[in-house]
């Protein structure tokens, strides 16, 4: 395989692979940019990265190909997904532009830059490809290792320091120092009473309804949904699912069934009316 790669033109197989996977990679990239939900973006990006890993392997960078899958697709993308979950996995972004002219400028710059890059690559004299056959003769990993620990050892050490710094930095950024003793439950309840806040426990979500999930507001006895029953984060994201209309429909169906079973002809109109008002 390596002998073929060293040739001026690649094999037909590689060409086929390039065109198919290249198209997937571009689609993934476009998906990353244009998907409304960030979780979809993340998945598209993961796809592109896997394609790139294959390309690394095809170009003789075996170590990098594996690292790409393990570190990038495996670790980094998972980290992304965690954050996406934290921020709201179902939240959809509006793609409507708010800054005047930003989109046109972005497109202009993007197209211009792309054209320039293409022109640059087209102009460059890239006729001769040596291939990695010679370099990988003693094995790709060994070759990389010998370079990293000799020629690039200083940069390598520095990246180590960089990683440590980054880890510490992430901790500092997200860590909140506790400056006083944690309050006991008694103290917390006393404080609540003193401040006149909501005294009893918050209502549970999803109760008195057919659906039972954290993003569904619990219905009060008169049928109105109580926002207090939903987690604050979900409330702020606007991700409360309103099922009151559905619940009322269910109620009506239930009454109708019971009427049929009891063979009543007259329904109590006042009861219906009250229920409708309550739903508003």
């Amino acid at each position: 395989m390596s002998a073929q790669l060293a040739a001026y033109a690649t094999s037909t197989g590689e060409a086929f692979q390039f065109w198919v996977l290249g198209a997937i990679a571009v689609m993934g990239a476009l998906g990353t940019v244009f998907m409304k939900k960030s979780v979809h973006s993340a998945l598209s990006l993961a796809g592109t990265m896997i394609v790139l890993a294959v390309f690394y392997l095809a170009n003789g960078a075996y170590f990098l190909g594996i690292v790409q899958i393990v570190v990038y697709t495996g670790a980094i993308m998972m980290l992304f997904l965690f954050v996406v979950m934290l921020v709201g996995v179902t939240a959809a972004d509006s793609l409507k532009e708010t800054i005047k002219g930003q989109r046109w400028l972005a497109l202009l710059c993007g197209v211009g830059f792309g054209v320039l890059l293409f022109a640059g690559i087209g102009n460059a004299s890239l006729k001769e490809f040596d291939g990695t056959g010679q370099a990988n003769a003693n094995g790709n990993v060994e070759g990389l290792a010998s370079l990293i620990f000799t020629k690039y050892v200083f940069a390598f050490e520095i990246t180590g320091a960089l990683l440590i710094t980054a880890a510490v930095g992430a901790m500092v950024l997200t860590h909140r120092e506790r400056t006083e003793r944690a309050k006991t439950q008694r103290e917390l309840s006393e404080q609540r009473v003193r401040e006149g806040k909501h005294l009893p426990p918050l209502p549970a979500p999803g109760v008195y309804a057919r659906h039972n999930a954290v993003d569904i507001a619990g219905l009060l006895p008169d049928g109105t949904p109580s926002e207090l029953s939903v987690n604050r984060t979900l409330r702020e994201r606007g991700q409360i699912r309103d099922v009151s209309a559905q619940a009322l429909g269910d109620l009506r169906a239930l009454e109708q069934r019971s009427e049929e079973r009891l063979e009543r002809t007259e329904t109590d109109p006042a009861h219906f009316k009250r229920a409708e008002e309550a739903s508003k």
Binding site: G112, F113, L116, N123
Partner: peptide
């Protein structure tokens, strides 16, 4: 930040153009 990013990107594009 995105407006600034456009300026940066445009600048980079100009640099590439100048180099070419």
């Amino acid at each position: 930040a995105r407006s600034y990013a456009v300026s940066m990107f445009g600048g980079a594009a100009l640099l590439v153009a100048a180099t070419l």
